[in-house]
């Protein structure tokens, strides 16, 4: 056969990437040419090199053993991919779990003036000591956790006698989403004869009170 045929037959059976196969083809051809240049007949050269299948088989055996460079590279790529996927999953989870704030109205769940009305109603009820009405705004968890007594005991922390309730100021609010649930946080100043109190209220998407804080 011709030297081109020989090399082609060898390279066809090699188990390695194309660029390596091209490189080997080039080297084999070069070796044959050198031998021809020394005056040796082609047939003898090819016989000494061996059957194309045998040469390819030997190459594949030796290339495969001792973790061929390709094996190492493939493993490295696989590891990087797995790490990237794990990081991506963690990032998505973190995004979902951690609270994110937005302008009220963005999610479509809360309307600014409705939220303000609720917040005002809560502050009014609390200020007048109307705990029954206040409880009406609570979520079920809040009902279990907070008693009117607890709230009563909070008042002296700010001042002994708050004085007459005068009303509320502007409400500042933001939406928060956490773990797939939407909340709105409202901060509102309320003035009394003797003190000024800042309320921070948290409502869930059902406009139930889930958080109550004041200072």
């Amino acid at each position: 056969m011709t030297k081109q045929d020989y090399v082609k037959q060898v390279v066809k059976k090699l188990n390695c990437p194309q660029n390596k196969r091209d490189d080997i083809a080039r080297q084999l051809m070069s070796d044959i040419e050198i031998a021809l240049g020394e005056g040796r007949p082609l047939e003898k050269i090819l016989t000494e090199m061996g059957e194309p299948e045998a040469l390819a088989r030997e190459f594949n055996e030796n290339f495969g053993s001792g973790e061929a460079p390709q094996g190492k590279k493939h493993r490295a790529v696989k590891v990087i991919l797995v790490v990237a996927v794990v990081l991506a999953v963690l990032a998505v989870f973190a995004y979902w779990a951690f609270p994110k704030t937005r302008e009220v109205g963005d999610s479509g769940k809360f309307t600014a003036n409705v939220v303000e009305q609720y917040a005002t109603a809560v502050v009014d009820a609390f200020s007048r000591g109307d705990y029954d009405t206040l409880e009406g705004y609570y979520s079920s968890e809040m009902k279990e956790a907070v008693t009117s007594q607890m709230l009563e005991e909070l008042k002296p922390v700010i001042g002994d006698d708050w004085g007459e309730y005068r009303g509320v100021g502007t409400a500042y609010m933001a939406e928060v989403s956490q773990r797939g649930k939407e909340y709105v946080i409202v901060q509102m100043n309320a003035s009394y004869a003797n003190v000024s109190v800042t309320y921070t209220l948290t409502f869930n998407s059902k406009m139930e009170l889930v958080g109550f804080y004041m200072k």
């Binding site: 080297q27 084999l28 040469l55 190459f59 055996e61 030796n62 290339f63 001792g66 460079p69 190492k72």
Partner: peptide, 15 residues
């Protein structure tokens, strides 16, 4: 030594 043995050795050493 045959080409099928030598070239893999050379590739590995280069790597």
């Amino acid at each position: 030594l045959k080409e099928g043995t030598l070239y893999p050795i050379l590739y590995r050493m280069e790597e």
